[in-house]
Amino acid sequence: MPVSTDYPLISNLTVWQNVALIRQYHDRLSKKEARKRVQSYLERLDVGGSAEKRNPQLSAEERFKIMMLRASMIDDAIILVSDPFRMLPHHRNASFLYDVAIMLDDLYTQCHIFDYSSNQDRYRTNNAPQH
């Protein structure tokens, strides 16, 4: 599942609706049940207060977290993060990206990051995973 600026959040849906949509559509969860689950995931990512916000109201970090969470909503998801520093332009290294990936690691099976080779050094951080 993609995490990329080419696949933005749906602008006429709130944050929780963007994430819940995947489960409501594929797993036929009721709106109430989907909302409850999404809220717990948002709180895990420390963005519980942004549940009712829409895409333009989010900071780059909040948006990235929501897009990672949305990509994790498909069962046995393989997440493909493309050009993450375009979404997180103020970050010098991938530390934040790794933190978010670790917070959600029980929700997906694999996470692959694709970036330009010129950004290679930005991925050498203390919390970088082994693989």
Partner: peptide
């Protein structure tokens, strides 16, 4: 590209 987003998911 929101229609593409739906297709991707």
């Amino acid at each position: 590209r929101e229609i593409d987003t739906l297709t991707a998911f």
